[in-house]
Amino acid sequence: MSIQHFRVALIPFFAAFCLPVFAHPETLVKVKDAEDQLGARVGYIELDLNSGKILESFRPEERFPMMSTFKVLLCGAVLSRVDAGQEQLGRRIHYSQNDLVEYSPVTEKHLTDGMTVRELCSAAITMSDNTAANLLLTTIGGPKELTAFLHNMGDHVTRLDRWEPELNEAIPNDERDTTMPAAMATTLRKLLTGELLTLASRQQLIDWMEADKVAGPLLRSALPAGWFIADKSGAGERGSRGIIAALGPDGKPSRIVVIYTTGSQATMDERNRQIAEIGASLIKHW
């Protein structure tokens, strides 16, 4: 067993022997301040990774656009098919120029040779490549099948209805392509620590998230040296922004954090800054 596999296998073990965790309302004060600064709703939840206990939450059962955070769930569904012998990570998928959609920095470079399922998941999570996500959605049967996968996990809230990039439209009061912070946090925890996926697939999923290259201005910008984070960000229309993450000190994750916002007129930089400040408060009061 590799060191990384050992780390993920012992996530519940280490967490069980940690000192009790206590909620700190100071972080919620910052979440509410972010709402004021952005002029928009902000949803927040913080779960203990081992027990699933909610440590703090704000608007945990209000719907927010998922945006690209759905790509972690998508690759979880792909990995479940791999575990069941219905898919192979090494299978190569070929596609054409007509398949390319807006923001496809990886797939646009491989029109000639195609990409493997493993490479597509890596591109979808680490670079948020939209064509990679659409190609992977095709392998599982489309958005409705991802929703069905989530329902089978016990998540009857999260739903995907459309493809990239239309799913980022974020129309107010439109339930399409949305989740709730509580539902997303619980589902992410199941994917990373539950028995739904094999140990190898859980490790692969967290490795992809740990290698995320496009979430630097968010929670990662607030992390002290030595902290662990595996995350996936999302951005959408109407001032929408979000991030889902597993993080913790001492090089291992111990909490799940989900943050979503929508309806702001603020710039992307300002949305990023507010999420980073929430992260800084979380870490300060850990």
Rank of each mutant, 00 (worst) to 15 (best):
Leu135His: 04
Ala170Asn: 09
Arg238Ile: 07
Glu277Val: 12
Ser57Phe: 09
Asn98Ile: 13
Trp163Glu: 11
Lys30Arg: 12
Glu87Lys: 02
Gly39Ser: 14
Val157Pro: 02
Val42Ile: 12
Thr147Gln: 09
Pro20Ser: 08
Asn272Val: 04
Val21Glu: 05
Gly234Val: 00
Asn50Cys: 08
Phe149Asn: 06
Glu166Ile: 13
Glu169Gln: 12
Gly90Trp: 11
Ala148Lys: 14
Arg271Gly: 08
Pro25Ala: 06
Leu10Ile: 12
Pro12Val: 11
Gly114Arg: 03
Asn50Tyr: 13
Lys232Ser: 00
Asp48His: 07
Asp155Cys: 01
Gly226Ser: 11
Leu223Pro: 02
Cys121Val: 03
Glu108His: 10
Asp250Tyr: 12
Asn168Tyr: 03
Ala77Glu: 09
Ser281Gly: 08
Met127Ser: 08
Phe17Lys: 07
Gln86Gly: 10
Arg7Lys: 10
Glu166Thr: 11
Thr69Gln: 01
Ser254Pro: 07
Ala183Lys: 08
Asn50Leu: 12
Gln88Ala: 13
Val42Ala: 06
Trp163His: 09
Thr131Ser: 12
Asn50Trp: 10
Pro224Cys: 05
Leu223His: 03
Thr138Leu: 12
Asn50Arg: 13
Asn272Ser: 05
Leu219Phe: 09
Val82Asn: 06
Glu270Cys: 12
Phe58Cys: 05
Met1His: 01
Gln86Val: 14
Gln204Leu: 15
Leu79Asp: 01
Arg238Gln: 12
Glu56Lys: 11
Arg255Phe: 02
Glu56Phe: 04
Pro25Trp: 10
His285Arg: 11
Thr179Arg: 00
Pro217Gln: 12
Lys53Met: 13
Ser264Cys: 10
Leu10Thr: 13
Arg91Gln: 07
Met209Ser: 02
Leu205Gln: 02
Leu197His: 05
Arg92Leu: 12
Leu188Asn: 02
Glu166Trp: 15
Arg189Ser: 13
Phe149Pro: 01
Trp286Ile: 04
Glu195Tyr: 07
Phe13Ala: 14
Ala183His: 12
Ser104Thr: 06
Arg118Glu: 15
Gly85Val: 06
Asn152Phe: 12
Phe228Asn: 06
Ala246Met: 15
Pro105Met: 06
Ser240His: 06
Asn134Arg: 04
Phe22Asp: 07
Asp83Gly: 05
Pro253Ala: 13
Ser68Ala: 00
Thr112Ala: 13
Ile244Arg: 00
Val31Thr: 06
Ala211Ser: 13
His151Val: 13
Ser254Glu: 13
Gln265Glu: 15
Asp36Val: 14
Gln274Thr: 15
Met268Ile: 10
Gly279Met: 04
Asp212Val: 04
Gly43Ser: 06
Arg162Asp: 09
Ala222Gly: 11
Pro165Thr: 11
Pro143Glu: 05
Met67Asp: 10
Ala211Val: 08
Thr262Pro: 01
Glu175Pro: 14
Arg118Lys: 11
Asp155Ser: 02
Leu199His: 13
Asp33Phe: 15
Glu62Cys: 07
Lys252Glu: 14
Phe17Arg: 05
Ala230Met: 07
Pro181Trp: 00
Lys32Leu: 12
Val42Asp: 00
Gln97Pro: 14
Asp177Cys: 03
Glu175Cys: 12
